[in-house]
Amino acid sequence: MKVSMKFLIVGTALVSTLFAGCKKEEDPTPSTSNTDGLVMIASGYTDEGGIKVNLYSTDSLYSRYTNFFVEVRDSASNTVIEDAHIELMPMMDMTTMMHSAPFENPSSTDAVNGLFPCAVVFQMPGDMGWTLNIHVHEHVNGGEGEVTFPLMVKNPDPTRTRVVTPLNDPMSRLIISYVQPMDPKVGINDFEITLHSRETMMSFPGIENYTVEIEPEMPSMGHGSPNNVNPTDAGNGHYNGKVNFTMTGLWRINLNIMDGSTVVDSTAYFEVTLQ
C-alpha cells in the first residue's frame, strides 16, 4: 500500500510538473495534497464528469468510526480540485438485505490541504459487502458524477463499535463508536465517542442531547481513575470528554448512556491497552 502511494505521489508530481510547464501563465493550483500518514484505500473515476476520486484513511478499514479523506482530481489534468460538493453513501449488501451506516459528509465544499475530510461508522465488519458511494460535484470545471468503491472492513481488536438495543426504544438500535484516544497515555486523555440511532436501514442520524457518563476501570484490579470528565454533546452525534489513566495496562471504559434521566444503555464499554 505504501509503495503504491509513493508511486502515486511521484506520478502525480511528474504529471503536474509537465502540466505546470504547459500552463505557466495560469494560477498555480496545488497539484498535490498532503497525504502524509494516510493510507490509500481506493482510487477510481466517476461515471460522469471526468473526475478522479482517491479515497484515503488513517489506516486500513475496521468496523469503527473511520475518518476518510477524499481527494478530487481533474481526470484529464490530474490537478487537485479543492472546491467540490461531496456526498457519501456507505452500504452493506448482506444479500438478503441491505443497510447503510452512520456517516458524516465533508462539512465544507473547501478542501483542507487538498482533501475533503469525512467519516463513516462501520457498525459491522465484512470482507465483502461493504461499498462506499461517493457523489462529487466539483465547482472548478462543473463536473459531477459518482463512484462506488468496494471496501474490505476488518474486525478490530478490541471492539470499537457497539450496536445495542436502547432500553427506551427496543425497535431501534443505538450505535456507539469509540473515536479517541487512539494513542492513550497515562495521564489525561481527550475522550470522544459518537452516538447514532438507526431510524431506518438507510438512516442513521447522530444523536443529540444525550447524557453520557464514563467510568474507567482496570478489570484485573477493580479500580478506576479519578477526575474524569463525562463526554458532552459536541454536535453531529459526537460527545467529548476527558478520560484519565493512572497506569499502563488494560483499561475498560464503561459507559452509561441516558436520555435525560432515562437510561438508554449501560452495558457498553470500550477497552484500551496502554503499553
Partner: peptide
C-alpha cells in the same frame, strides 16, 4: 516503579 503482571494482559506500570 511499580509494574504489575496480570495474566494474559499488558503489564501495568506506574
Amino acid at each position: 516503579e511499580m509494574t504489575m503482571y496480570p495474566n494474559n494482559e499488558a503489564p501495568m506500570f506506574m
